[in-house]
């Protein structure tokens, strides 16, 4: 039983992280040197940890599981790739009716009669993505045509006069690479050079200063993202 004359609560203070400066340093030295003190700190930690039980559970969005699994698969969750991935929020969820309609539209355009007839055996299946938008942004559809190396998007971002919308591709390594700016008429065609686009590649749109991000990575908010897949 504790007596009131002995108000040394250092163990509890260490467990809660209340100390700073020299008091903290001294307590941490004692932690290493005094096993009984270390046990006391551990007891307090265990007691305070029961506070976790009162925190309500909140189911995280499904895309986080994919992001986390991808980060681990991409190399043990090393800092660089995790950091790059962290910049990205996948606006997951089902395809809305508007997005589905846009997809049909863009596909119709994508399969307009080709200028030259290609041998049927070399038919390349285009990849499509629905870019699920954040709040206040209309849905986007995107198609990547491997035969022409062209990405087409259909959809418009409401932009201030002094901003551009930029399209990015994020591959397996989690690093965003700039594809180009969206045109203001809402029908963009971008020829991709030197960037690998494959099923699973994520397309994302960010809002940037005029002319696009001044850096290698997006600087503005990401307003829509979606994954490419074969159809």
């Amino acid at each position: 039983m504790t007596t009131p004359d002995d108000p040394d609560m250092t163990a509890a203070e260490v467990a809660l992280g209340l100390l700073d400066g020299e008091a903290r340093a001294a307590a941490h030295r004692r932690l290493l040197a005094d096993p009984a003190f270390a046990r006391e700190v551990a007891h307090w930690r265990a007691h305070f940890a029961t506070l976790f039980a009162e925190v309500p559970e909140v189911v995280p969005p499904a895309y986080l599981e994919h992001r986390i699994a991808a980060a681990v698969a991409a190399g043990g969750g090393d800092r660089a790739s995790v950091h790059a991935l962290r910049r990205w929020r996948w606006f997951g969820g089902g395809m809305s009716a508007v997005a589905a309609a846009l997809l049909v539209l863009v596909l119709t355009r994508a399969t307009e009669p080709p200028a030259a007839v290609r041998p049927p055996s070399r038919t390349v299946v285009p990849m499509v993505a629905t870019l699920a938008p954040g709040a206040g942004v209309a849905p986007f559809a995107a198609v990547y045509d491997q035969s022409t190396g062209q990405v087409r998007t259909l959809g418009r971002v409401a932009l201030p006069r002094d901003r551009d919308a930029e399209l990015w591709a994020i591959g397996q390594d989690g690093v965003p690479r700039a594809l180009g700016l969206l045109t203001r008429d809402g029908k963009t065609r971008i020829v991709v050079r030197g960037i690998r686009i494959e099923p699973g590649t994520t397309l994302a749109i960010s809002i940037e200063p005029l002319g696009g991000s001044p850096r290698a990575l997006p600087t503005g908010p990401v307003v829509a993202t979606g994954q490419l897949d074969r159809i």
Binding site: F52, V55, E57, V58, P60, L64, I68, R86
Partner: peptide, 23 residues
């Protein structure tokens, strides 16, 4: 994940941040 997300959310007070922290 639901428990840890709850912890992150409670401490960060910001959903976007809590998602990044959870990752």
């Amino acid at each position: 994940a639901a428990k840890l997300f709850g912890v992150c959310l409670r401490i960060c007070g910001d959903r976007t941040a809590a998602e990044d922290v959870l990752q």
